[in-house]
Nucleic acid binder design. Structure first.
Length: 645
RNA sequence: GCCGGCGUAGCUCAGGGGUAGAGCGUUUCCUUGGUAAGGAAAAGGUCAUGGGUUCAAUUCCCAUCGUUGGCUCCA
């Protein structure tokens, strides 16, 4: 062995010199025993590996614990193996597909063969897993030849693993073994099963082998695991909370929207209260957009087929979309509009444009229709008819960055005003390996992708790059917000597009009297009103900010005797455009309060003898309780403050 | 689109081969009350739709539609 020393550098800048190979685990031990107890995996020069791996070269080392997303992923991946081990011991003869870690937990695809697996006894699997976990079996890595690997799974008659091995290179195959279970796996894994302290099998679902519906359907068991029992409890509580906040449930309870089989699936019907909420959002954004120099436009819900042939949508989606609308005239074909941009391009073309006119910004709450696969429909988040808060900015190339930057400012303003302070910006780029998915020249893609990257950097947005997520006509920047219970949602989108101006032959006259092609920016801060409202409901659990609440106050007369006073108060409030109603029902005040609380009405004004005589209001706030007695003006003042965005 | 679960009153749900039940809501009456449910009565259902089995189907079987959990997809 050489005496050559090597340096391991840690994230905090510490550098350690070693003279013989050392395991990441031993480095952890040198730092502290506590760290060593918690380290799940290691990252060596950016690659996640087992902590038992020997390092004998200069390396940047990161010790991964439960706090790191890769640490979590490693524990979950190992948990998938543990679940497989438990399943094998409970149901001998099963065959295994793949078992990866996912965003929240892990799954394993299992072919139960002749065994009837009804999913009733998931707790038995959980118990078995915990029992095996307590044995603290080490995860042992073992490189294996392709031949040996095939032999092993042939003996098990597991055609799925054999298929996986087939696609692997000899020499790059490893097995991992813990306890009595051996699996084909490239790792890494946690040191031993004992790190897994809490396990829950969340659900089971069918999943085709390799996602191909022509192939066999396997049973997919989803699970999640934690290094502490407490964390599992918290996670399950979060799931409960998410269920309570489900916009489909709250939307129904608060009378926001409904669906009708006759109207059609995926086509929401907005009830008066939902419509009120929507209008408030619209007018909020309209105001902001007017300030930002947008011009509202209005276009019809259908467009001639040629419009979409020109735009490229017809070629791309024609077959998989709502079919065309015919008229009594032969050869007349229209399509429901799937996007507003082609219409807006035609508006741009309606007159010659000078470089001095640019940028022009056309904004429209445009309702579009897309034939989504039936299995994809979900509440308001995935529908077949929805309204985009759409706008298209046509500008000169030299204005692109500034315009893009302004759009980001507007989007940030909107997100902040609506209670989404936490977000990341996802930049979606095209995947160079699948050029058939995109239209447009390489040069324009290059320019557009770089413009987005530059502006995001200038704005110092917290950015992630996603290859292959671009729209077919251009790259985009999406805002991913985090909601009140930590879930991530994709909201507003901004897209740069050189392609549509090309296809529509859009032009402007430059200072030199030559014709030039403008650049287009598509943008929608909400995305769609439907989806946004769904997210807003889940984020607020239905407790909307008062400026958005369809019913902002309710007047609760103690008894019939005070209906008159209630009416006077109500009329006064109406003068200020506040929205509410009088609960004139022949019920006791407790009942009226309870019902108003359930309806999540921000302010309850309780009026009885005292108030009528003193000309005051007794104010109660939703979720807070009695605020005491107010003069009308004092209440007005408070109301006005609360209503400010 | 594919696989599985579900579909009973406006809502939440119970029931089950002999044509239906609760709570909430609604309506009416009594009650006129002080910060999360006052009392009584009534109305309300082709048990998703269409076939089949059966003396008899809301119940069992099949199909369709809708919904839901996944898979695949997303301008």
């Amino acid at each position: 062995m050489s005496n050559q020393s090597f340096i391991i550098s840690l994230p905090d800048g510490t550098k350690k010199e070693y003279f013989r190979p050392i395991k990441a685990m031993d480095v952890a031990l040198e730092i502290s025993e506590g760290l060593a107890r918690n380290v799940l995996a290691a990252k060596v020069n950016g690659k996640t590996v087992d902590v038992s791996m020997f390092i004998n070269f200069d390396a940047a080392l990161e010790l991964l614990t439960w706090k790191d997303s890769e640490g979590k992923a490693t524990l979950w991946h190992s948990s998938a193996h543990l679940m497989a081990e438990a399943l094998e011991s409970l149901y001998p003869g099963i065959k295994l597909g793949i078992g990866p870690a996912i965003d929240n937990g892990f799954y394993y695809d299992v072919d139960f063969g002749e065994i009837i697996f009804d999913g009733e006894q998931l707790f038995l699997i959980e118990e078995k897993m915990l029992e095996l976990a307590r044995q603290k079996s080490e995860f042992l890595r073992e490189p294996i030849s392709k031949q040996e690997a095939v032999k092993y799974f042939e003996a098990k008659d597991d055609e799925y693993k054999l298929e996986l091995i087939e696609n692997l290179k000899d020499g790059a195959i490893t097995f991992y073994t813990q306890g009595n279970f051996t699996d084909l796996c490239k790792g890494p894994h946690i040191p031993h099963t004992g790190f897994i302290k809490a396990v829950k099998i969340l659900n089971i679902a069918g999943a085709y082998w390799r996602g191909d519906e022509k192939r066999k359907q396997l049973t997919r068991l989803y699970g999640i695991s934690f290094p502490k029992q407490k964390e599992l409890k918290e996670y399950l509580a979060l799931l409960e909370e998410a269920k309570k906040r489900d916009h489909r449930k709250i939307g129904q309870e608060l009378g926001f929207f409904t669906f009708s089989q006759k109207v059609g699936k995926g086509l929401p019907l907005w009830l008066p209260k939902g419509a009120a909420l929507r209008e408030r959002l619209e007018s909020f954004l309209k105001k902001a957009q007017l300030k930002a120099g947008y011009d509202p436009v209005i276009t019809p819900h259908i467009g001639g087929k040629e419009l979409y042939v020109t735009s490229g949508h017809y070629e791309k989606y024609g077959k998989d979309s709502f079919q065309s609308i015919h008229t009594p005239s032969e050869d007349e074909e229209f399509l429901l509009k799937p996007m507003n941009c082609p219409h807006h391009c035609e508006i741009y073309k309606s007159q010659p444009r000078s470089y001095k006119d640019l940028p022009v910004r056309f904004a429209e709450f445009g309702t579009v229709y897309r034939y989504e696969q039936s299995g994809e429909l979900h509440g308001l988040t995935r529908v077949r008819g929805f309204t985009q808060d759409d706008a298209h900015i046509f500008c000169r190339s030299d204005q692109l960055e500034e315009e893009f930057s302004k759009v980001i400012d507007l989007t940030l303003y909107v997100l902040k005003a609506l209670g989404f302070p936490e977000f990341t910006a996802q930049i979606s780029l095209r995947d160079l390996s699948t050029p058939e998915k995109y239209i447009g020249t390489d040069e324009n893609w290059y320019i557009a992708e770089n413009a987005i990257k530059k502006v995001a950097k200038d704005k110092r947005l917290d950015t992630v790059l996603e290859t292959g997520e671009a729209a077919f006509y251009g790259p985009k920047l999406d805002f991913m917000v985090k909601d009140a219970i930590g879930r991530k949602w994709q909201l507003g989108t901004i897209q740069v597009d050189y392609t549509l101006p090309e296809r529509f032959k859009l032009e402007y006259i430059g200072a030199d009297n030559q014709k030039y092609r403008p650049v287009m920016i598509h943008r929608a801060p909400f995305g769609s009103l439907e989806r946004f409202i769904a997210i807003l409901i889940e984020n607020t659990a239905g407790n909307l900010p008062i400026w958005l609440a369809p019913e902002q106050f309710v007047v609760l007369p103690i008894s019939e005797k005070y209906h008159n006073y209630a009416k006077n108060v109500f009329i006064e409030l109406q003068k200020y455009d506040f929205n509410g109603f009088i609960d004139r029902r022949d019920e006791k005040i407790g009942k009226k309060i309870r019902d108003a609380e359930i309806k999540k009405i921000p302010f309850m004004l309780i009026l009885g003898e005292k108030e009528a005589v003193g000309n005051t209001l007794s104010v109660r706030a939703h979720g807070t309780g009695d605020l005491g007695s107010f003069s009308f003006n004092k209440f007005l003042e408070m109301f006005k403050t609360k209503i400010e965005i």
